[in-house]
Amino acid sequence: MTRNGETVKWITARRRHPLAGYAVVILALTLFGVGYAVIAPSAERAEAQTLAADAAAAEQQPSQEDVAAGREIFTKSCASCHGPDGTGGEGYTGPDITGEGAAAVDFQVSTGRMPSMDPDQQMPRKPSAFTQEEIDDLVAYYNAEIGDEGSPPVPTDIPHSAPERSDFEDHHAYEEALEEWETEYESYIEGADDTEAGMKLYLANCAHCHSWSGGGGALTGGRWAPEIHDSTPRQIYEAMITGPGAMPAFNDTTITPDEKQDMIAYVKDLQHEANAGGFFDLNRVGQVAEGFISWTVGITLIVACAIWITAKQRAHD
């Protein structure tokens, strides 16, 4: 097409057309409408999306190298008790873990409880033997070759532990990751809007073992409910869906993910709540510690004063 002897683009030639404006508006509306319809959640699409996301995750996570690395970790650190295929059984001290789910793997290994020194003892929380990357590899291997279909997956949308400086080469990248993690963490905790539900659910379902403060407590048969102050929200979530040790499982039907978020937010908020009553919080042990202090500090100091003010010089004998 030419104008004034020059070749111009088709669209440029029609820019000033009286209908051009309408055409643009209609086009924009169509785009928005179709776009919205595609993005907006509906049951079917949500499912489709989840599947897509799962597929994407499945595609993204277990590269063959990851699975291979995971297999190596499993063979070295897990198979001696759980067996080469994770079914435990004859000749192995560990239980069948095929139905436990990736969430359990992530929970047990990231809290340092597995690998266990002594399978007959309840394992305390300790620093994990593996980096998060190694745990992810292990989870990938578990998902690929051991775990049953439908066993609880790792709740990847719940914030996990803060990034470690040692995992990053330069400080900047670490700071960035830390900031990102903090945002994620805070939005998760602040995203819980029902304090009352969180409190009631926590005090009805968790506190009778882990205590009102999350400080843990004694259980029957030599077991104990651990303190959960060091646990990340994801670990708490994983513990709820998998029920490690003596803990019952609270699946997502019994307590919905939103309610779990309320509970986690409640106990984490409480943990970070300042001690308005004074500098010493006595570990929030409560009345036992208060009684102890009232005797060892209170009465003791006062009696010491009584001894002081009634002291007299004694004749030597």
């Binding site: 005090l203 500098f279 929030r284």
Partner: peptide, 20 residues
């Protein structure tokens, strides 16, 4: 020394129970 921090305990409801 903080003693009996009632604000941390939360209100009593008949369903609530805690160890320790």
């Amino acid at each position: 020394v903080q003693v009996n921090p009632i604000h941390l305990f939360g209100p009593f409801t008949p369903t609530s129970i805690t160890s320790g």
